[in-house]
Amino acid sequence: MKIDERYRLRETAGLYILLDRQSETADLTRIVTLNDSARLLWQHLREREFTEADAAAVLTEHYGLSPQQAAADARKWTALLLEHGLAR
């Protein structure tokens, strides 16, 4: 899958938020914030094709998670991306 390039990560008010470059078609009252691990994954995996295994590898490398835990977390993150239309 690939992160949709219409979204840009920006730090503001102490939060990491996704700004929609095509905001005329978006509901601007809904914003997406990323926590530290979601931000790490976003920064590592944007602008390229990636798989759940790639995401799990990032988590293992940075947080020292067990392969099972990293796979579960990576699955959760990619499911959320797809559910909210942030990747396809």
Binding site: T12, A13, L15, L28, T29, R30, I31
Partner: peptide, 11 residues
């Protein structure tokens, strides 16, 4: 607060 406040202001 936080993200909700930001989402109220940005539009």
């Amino acid at each position: 607060k936080g993200a909700e406040a930001l989402a109220a202001l940005l539009p």
